[in-house]
Design a protein around this nucleic acid. Sequence first.
DNA 1: AATGAATGAGCGTTCATTCAT
DNA 2: CATGAATGAACGCTCATTCAT
Lengths: 217, 217, 217, 217
Amino acid sequence: MSKSFVPAAPARRRRKEARPAELLAAALDLFVERGFAATRLDEVAARAGVSKGTLYLYFASKEELFKAVIRQGILPVLEEGEEMLAQHRGDAASLLQDLMRRWWDLTGNTPLGGVPKLMISEAGNFPEVARYYHENVIQRVHDLLGNVLRRGIENREFRPVNIESAIDVISAPMLMLSIWQHSMAPCSCGGMEDPETYLRTHVDLLLNGLRAKEMSE
Amino acid sequence: MSKSFVPAAPARRRRKEARPAELLAAALDLFVERGFAATRLDEVAARAGVSKGTLYLYFASKEELFKAVIRQGILPVLEEGEEMLAQHRGDAASLLQDLMRRWWDLTGNTPLGGVPKLMISEAGNFPEVARYYHENVIQRVHDLLGNVLRRGIENREFRPVNIESAIDVISAPMLMLSIWQHSMAPCSCGGMEDPETYLRTHVDLLLNGLRAKEMSE
Amino acid sequence: MSKSFVPAAPARRRRKEARPAELLAAALDLFVERGFAATRLDEVAARAGVSKGTLYLYFASKEELFKAVIRQGILPVLEEGEEMLAQHRGDAASLLQDLMRRWWDLTGNTPLGGVPKLMISEAGNFPEVARYYHENVIQRVHDLLGNVLRRGIENREFRPVNIESAIDVISAPMLMLSIWQHSMAPCSCGGMEDPETYLRTHVDLLLNGLRAKEMSE
Amino acid sequence: MSKSFVPAAPARRRRKEARPAELLAAALDLFVERGFAATRLDEVAARAGVSKGTLYLYFASKEELFKAVIRQGILPVLEEGEEMLAQHRGDAASLLQDLMRRWWDLTGNTPLGGVPKLMISEAGNFPEVARYYHENVIQRVHDLLGNVLRRGIENREFRPVNIESAIDVISAPMLMLSIWQHSMAPCSCGGMEDPETYLRTHVDLLLNGLRAKEMSE
DNA sequence: AATGAATGAGCGTTCATTCAT
DNA sequence: CATGAATGAACGCTCATTCAT
């Protein structure tokens, strides 16, 4: 279309195209902060700078908005992780460390870090969405980490452990960190004040816990 | 019957005294399952076997009911843990293991295990309650675990680690386990299907991670 | 019965017999102060020192309580007024003055003075009660005053006036006085602060207004 | 039609601007007829031809609606009265008569005539509103009548009387007339059937009562 | 006779959703 | 596309009434 001829779409147009993303960002923030039921569409619309009616031009209902919030923008990071796994040639320990670091920088430490809290809070009200999230996000992260662990065990870097449960144990502190940042932390409750130290300790304990003992007796 | 031997509180009376606990149990279940806003008082009352109006004989408002749910019955277990710490004479590793086991049996694996999920979900809407919970539960668990870690480090059982962050890292898998049981698990999502294995793996990784290397080099 | 043999009924019994009157007094106060709908039976019972259930032993419903409040204790004063008219032998002016004074002392200036305000406020919700009150109280007062006026006019003490409307005009300031005392006055609004002066002025203006001019031109 | 000449506010718009007035009119009628507590917002909305939710677009609560009802449209008439006083050059008696006549035509004999009954009925429940009404309406009427009386006394038209209490005595029959029209009268109770006669009698008695005797001994 | 726990219909208020402009 | 006025179903809470004790 002629769009390709105009180097810069008029500001109005640019806003128009950004609308859904702005609405999703506003909705994510509010859903995470207050939960689905306690969030009013009025406020979502206001925060995105549009009227309540406009919201319905882009999302058919509050529930669809919720689903869109969950679906959006999680996969890219995941894909990058899978890419990292595929291309990595070094030891499993440093790969594990890189993956966690990268996740924290790109997801945990951004608004998207609120999604796990949101999904956990609302799973009971939206079981289908929970299943969707589980299959498309959790399961894939699970497989990803599973591969890393398997690789580490295979080359004797890690002790043999129950991989399935180890994955969950390994993920838990990461999840709790992002959950905490979006629930207790904003209430001026202390705890996990320094994510960097927290992550370093987690990695330290974890790699020590996994490391094959050089022998001992 | 032997009933004639007891002064026999009238049936009405006995119900009346049990009501608050029944209502709290019903409310806990539903708040955990659906969140505060999505829980209807009608249903809480129905689940407790009374009418909506009766609820108001015992709790002044939905919010007061919520606060009572959070307050109830968390402290006893905590006190037992503090007792265990005070009386324990063996190594820190087994104390840590015992504490975690006991918590799981008495709290994590009961309806009360839903409280962390509930508190996390609603912290944004009830900051004062979150602070109350933080001070009276989280902080005390924190101190408890801190003492165990310190003791283990002092007698060279554990490596020196950053205690503050290690506490959070250690607690995270326990919390995630109980959270998961009350959010994703009931949606027939897989994951953490076997808490026993999960706990064993956690303890295994953890103690290995903490253990002072008997030598190396 | 044997009751006549016990000189003093036990206190308990005496209370029991006073119950309806105490309940009526409490109900009158509250109905006058807040209106029928805004008065809770809880409070009526509490003010009478009994439980809510007890109220239903004496009055079948809130509405019946209302009717009883209206019926109670208005007639005695009326009867005295009719008695005064029958026995009076002096001039109409002083009879009129005596009647008004007596009404104020025995009714207007007592809790019963709130009844006109109550009846006026609730007439729309209880038309049958309004009609009952009109026929049994208002109408009889009307007739009473009509007789006084007629007598005054007949013996040339008063000018001939339209008796029917004059009665209402004459009553209005009396009614307004008692209404005011039970509505605006308790809100620390000023006005009608001194009922005695108000009454004196009313009588003064009224008798002057009625008095047959000695002639003039 | 000539409609094409006006910019033509869209129909929606025109409704929107009329809504508050329509709602206030409906609320006034029902509050006067049944009292504040017994009036259901459903009915107010229905009478104004809108749904219950719409009411809340214009008034924040039932109580705010009540306050708006009391505030509305009383002052204009008052201002006219004050204007009449300022411009009047004739005798006080005719001014007094004109004021009462005008009040009856513009207020007493319109839906607004129910406001005194409403205010009296609800003063106990809304003391602040009662004070507002007292200061802004009653007090100003009081001052207005006080000036008329003073003027009449100064030019020897009226006898000297206690002005403060005379004002209340003079107002009472006017108030009672409008109160009666909105309480007992609609219950097919008799009394005050002919307001015109009633008013004439009031003026007649009043002016006779006030008039300085041209001589007498 | 007296109690007070229990009820449930009813009302004020909110908010997702619709639709005329 | 965008608006915001209007809707009405739903929910928190109240309170007159009942009834087992």
